[in-house]
Simulated assay, not measured.
Amino acid sequence: MKFFVPFARLRQQPTIVVDSTANGAALVLAHWRGAPTPAALRDDTSAGSVLRALHAPATPGLEASAVTANHFDIDGFIGVWSLLHPAQALRHERLLRLTATLGDFRELDRSDPLADAALQLVGWLNAKEQELFYRPFGAPALRRREDEASAEKFAWFLPSFGAVLENPETGRAAWEPEYRRVKQATAVMASAHTRIRRYPEIGLVVIETPEPLPYYALFGPTAGFDMVLSLYSGNRYEFEYKYTTWIDLESQPTLPRLPLAALAARLNALETTPRRWTHDGITDTGPLLRLEGSGLAKAQRYADPDQRPIYASSISPEKLEQEVVAFFQAGYAAIEPRRYWSWADIRAAGEQLVD
């Protein structure tokens, strides 16, 4: 029988590390860039690597009884839970894979027959996390380290999740508010009010829709793409590098993240309002480029777009889209997509752009 241990105790016994990486682990099952996950077990999500491992019981290190992670999120939790409940996890493998993908990449495939069930599970996990603990990236506000504080979340969720997986109705009171909100937003995304333009050569999706929406709806049509430019009414905009370019994505090659300073400078040269275009660094999990983005805490940047202020620009949507597309077309002109970029490779690609 496997059991969970707080991250600080991983070296006290042979330990499997999920959705994290650490020296001294018996086995690492993570999609983090550069993580030593065995090649045969690599997957888009860390939970996916765990599920692959459950199909390969002879994997060296899998015999370790202790399991840990250095943070709590949906993908990592599902990976940890699956190691502790392997038979149940394999019975629900497709649903757990969908749930981990939705939790990490925010991509909801409306055509999948299990999409509603995955949204319900994600909604339950999100609601109970906020009700009982703190929201994602909220540990610093409590003056606690995430690897320490998150152990309390695992202690509550690990014995509770299986019942909701088997019968989502038992968690309806928790998951229904977010479920309804996302379903309404998904209807907007599928309506004539929304227009979507794709630029596959640079991995960009442009979404033109009236108001900011929850990520689970907004990013639904972006599977296979790594950048999203959202154009809202009233000249309100956000550009985002998806989490798919922070991790080692297994399913397809990707282009490296490019530093956004030059693009921000170009937009600031065009901007006539007092606000300034700001951006996050390329190593952030989901870098944003937006007006006055530097004033947002990490928890706000991770939260849904409809839960943060988005300011009006003087730049027209047509001009903004033109500038963003031109920037990345030029930046990626001499770069070929591939798998397993190192952070050193990504920085080097950015330096070539500056040069």
Rank of each mutant, 00 (worst) to 15 (best):
W156M: 12
S150I: 06
F157D: 00
P177M: 03
A155I: 05
R172S: 10
R145S: 14
E148Q: 14
S160K: 13
L158C: 02
E178K: 15
E152I: 03
A151M: 11
V164D: 04
G171D: 04
N167Y: 07
W175Y: 06
W156I: 10
F154C: 03
R145P: 11
E176D: 12
K153C: 06
K153A: 07
P159Y: 04
A174R: 12
P159T: 09
E148I: 11
R172T: 11
E178F: 14
S160M: 11
E166M: 01
G162E: 03
E148G: 09
F154H: 03
W175D: 01
A149I: 10
G162S: 04
E148S: 10
E178M: 14
T170Q: 11
G171F: 04
T170L: 13
L158R: 02
N167A: 15
K153E: 10
F154D: 01
S160C: 10
P177S: 11
A151C: 13
A151P: 08
W175G: 04
L165T: 00
A163C: 11
E176G: 06
G171I: 05
G162P: 04
R145F: 13
A155R: 08
F154M: 00
E178Y: 12
A173G: 13
L165Y: 00
A155F: 07
T170R: 15
Y179E: 02
P168M: 01
E166W: 00
A151E: 08
P159K: 09
S160N: 15
A151T: 00
R145L: 15
S150H: 10
A149M: 07
Y179H: 08
E148H: 14
G171E: 02
P168A: 05
A173T: 13
E176C: 15
